[in-house]
């Protein structure tokens, strides 16, 4: 599916650009996007390095395990494939907690660390496990209690009440997360058969 979406966007965009802006514009557009991707990776490198280092200390000190045991009753049922000894759960819990607190730059490295731990614990599937899919889909639906970027932008644009949207945003993102959980449960069996 990722392949289909990718080809569809790339082919449509490239042909569109060639027709509307002329074939000469295509190469420059493609290269500038590729450059943007690498620039983002470099920009991410600092925060990923910093927060992966911090996460390792927190893991060794037992902080992430403590957090996970607090959150496990809430998120445990979403990951039936993970046993009580799984080292992924503390990282999943930490990443979700960081997202909820609006710490996107800490949540991403924690999330990637969780994915790597999930991959390391996977000895049976050739592709992604159910837990990896569930975790990625829930993160993609966004978990947030304080939409800090949006509030700051609204303040910058001269809003009389920048935080007026907090309640509505939390409602909307809860709906998208609930939909994500339901869709994951509904679709995961079909995906498994395809393998």
């Amino acid at each position: 599916m990722m392949g289909i979406v990718w080809v569809a966007m790339l082919a449509t965009g490239t042909i569109w650009a060639a027709v509307v802006r002329g074939p000469a514009s295509v190469a420059a557009m493609a290269i500038s996007s590729a450059k943007e991707a690498v620039q983002l990776c470099l920009a991410l490198a600092g925060s990923i390095g910093l927060w992966s280092g911090m996460a390792r200390i927190a893991q060794q000190a037992g902080l992430t395990a403590a957090l996970a045991s607090g959150i496990r009753p809430l998120i445990g049922p979403l990951f039936p494939g993970l046993g009580p000894k799984s080292k992924s759960m503390p990282l999943i819990a930490s990443s979700m907690a960081a997202n909820l607190l609006g710490l996107g730059m800490a949540a991403t490295p924690l999330g990637l660390a969780a994915m790597q731990q999930l991959a390391a614990e996977n000895h049976t599937h050739a592709g992604p496990t159910d837990a990896m899919c569930t975790f990625a889909i829930i993160t993609a639906s966004s978990l947030t209690l304080v939409p800090t970027t949006i509030i700051s932008l609204r303040a910058e644009m001269g809003s009389a009440d920048p935080a007026a949207v907090v309640g509505a945003t939390v409602f909307a993102t809860s709906c998208s997360t609930a939909a994500a959980v339901i869709l994951d449960l509904a679709l995961r069996k079909r995906g498994r058969k395809d393998q």
Partner: peptide, 20 residues
């Protein structure tokens, strides 16, 4: 997330995330 573990097969995650 899938790229970070070198997985290119994304199963049902793309339609599920887009519908969400």
């Amino acid at each position: 997330y899938f790229g970070s573990v070198g997985i290119t097969q994304t199963r049902h995650t793309v339609p599920a995330a887009l519908l969400a």
